[in-house]
């Protein structure tokens, strides 16, 4: 009996939702704006997908396709452009999100 990768992913996803639920309820309401800013930064993790596309690794990422090599150089080029734009956008999120979160959190001081 073999479990498909999709099922494993689904299990991880559901469990992560539960973890998220419990962790987020523990966040103090005073820090809800920094929470949104840091989740913004974390959502920049799509950079990983964009890096795969930009770096020319898409065919590996698709399950069941195996060692297909893109025959058309142009197709690969367009994929890289698409991926690079993705990397650019996600990077704005990562750098902007973490820096602004840090800036905000530094403001919260105790008397």
């Amino acid at each position: 009996m073999v479990i498909s990768l999709f099922t494993v992913a689904l299990i991880v996803f559901v469990l992560a939702c539960f973890v998220g639920y419990h962790v987020i309820w523990g966040v103090t309401p005073a820090l809800h704006t920094p929470l949104m800013a840091v989740t913004n930064a974390i959502s920049g993790i799509v950079v990983v997908g964009a890096m795969m596309v930009a770096g020319g690794a898409v065919e590996v990422a698709s399950v069941g396709v195996g060692g297909y090599i893109i025959t058309s150089e142009q197709a690969a080029f367009y994929a890289k452009v698409i991926g690079a734009v993705g990397v650019f956008l996600a990077s704005i999120n990562i750098f902007g999100g973490f820096v602004v979160t840090n800036r905000m959190l530094a403001m919260f001081k105790k008397k």
């Binding site: 999709f6 992913a9 996803f13 639920y21 962790v23 929470l35 949104m36 989740t39 974390i42 990422a61």
Partner: peptide, 30 residues
């Protein structure tokens, strides 16, 4: 967050799935 998680499913990347699920729940709770 859900968009990031869906991307994680496409790539079979658990990191994206975990991060996406965390953000998705966070936004939903807020």
């Amino acid at each position: 967050g859900w968009a990031a998680a869906a991307t994680g499913f496409t790539l079979n990347n658990m990191q994206l799935i975990i991060a996406g699920a965390l953000i998705g729940s966070s936004g939903a709770i807020l």
